[in-house]
């Protein structure tokens, strides 16, 4: 699920692949970089734990969550900590989203009218979470420049949404390392002023892959209000049974 938190985080997750088949050096075409990452992603499964910290000037809250993903269509998240919320879960299949709460022992499908509401109190909306990977096709991608940082090549890619894409931004600018770790993702309004930014602050090996270990999403104007993710553990290319992503498993966890 971690990679599915947002399209952004999804791209972050792309970093888990050592895209051996495509040497970054050859993938100078922006669309190709992203496309290649996508292709890899489609055949993968994962199981991870991570923490999510919601920070406000006068308040902070941290949750620990466990997630499973299979391909880019299915994911399941379950809260481990704090105890109060343990067992609350979210299941995503395609664009559909269900929520489960042990307090009421009910599974409820989130109606589209609630998709703009915040997910678990974070700076992400349900819609951000439920974003399908297909969204990648709804942009025109272009490579702005290639930089060098910490001994890595960094591609700066500009993604402009197509006319009818369900994206409100004027453009998005991504900084992706040659090992496909997403370093930065900035969202611009339609006057091309930056509005919010997702920034990776720690990159490292986990589960045999190079991944973003810590990343933070904040509005440009209110930097002391943010949501931060930390990867605690991750396994990749494991076998996740199909029955993981079912309503009955959301309700009665077997995995």
């Amino acid at each position: 699920m971690f990679p599915r938190i947002t399209r952004t985080t999804m791209l972050t997750a792309l970093t888990v692949f050592n895209l051996a088949s495509i040497a970054p050096a050859q993938a100078l075409d922006a669309a190709a970089i992203i496309k290649a990452a996508m292709d890899q992603w489609r055949g993968t499964s994962s199981h991870s734990t991570m923490s999510m910290t919601i920070h406000r000037p006068d308040w902070e809250r941290t949750m620990v969550m466990e997630g499973w993903t299979a391909g880019d269509k299915k994911s399941l998240v379950r809260v481990l900590e704090p105890k109060k919320d343990a067992g609350n879960g979210t299941l995503l299949i395609g664009d559909n989203m269900w929520t489960f709460s042990p307090k009421v022992n009910r599974v409820i499908k989130i109606p589209s009218s609630m998709m703009n509401q915040s997910w678990m109190g974070s700076d992400f909306s349900n819609k951000d979470i439920a974003r399908s990977a297909d969204i990648i096709d709804q942009y025109h991608h272009s490579l702005l420049e290639t930089q060098t940082a910490d001994g890595h090549k960094v591609y700066v890619i500009q993604s402009v949404p197509k006319e009818d894409a369900p994206v409100v931004w004027g453009k998005e600018v991504l900084r992706i390392r040659d090992d496909y770790v997403l370093l930065e993702h900035t969202f611009f309004d339609q006057d091309m002023k930056p509005v919010k930014r997702m920034k990776t602050s720690k990159v490292g090996m986990m589960g045999g892959r190079m991944v973003a270990l810590q990343e933070r999403m904040a509005k440009i104007e209110t930097k002391d209000e943010y949501t931060e993710f930390k990867m605690l553990s991750a396994k990749f290319d494991i076998s996740v049974p199909g029955s993981t992503f079912t309503l009955s498993n959301l309700r009665n966890p077997r995995f």
């Binding site: 809250r61 949750m63 609350n88 709460s101």
Partner: peptide, 9 residues
């Protein structure tokens, strides 16, 4: 209010 999931029947 504390960011937890509020649920009830």
């Amino acid at each position: 209010k504390d960011g937890s999931v509020a649920a009830a029947i």
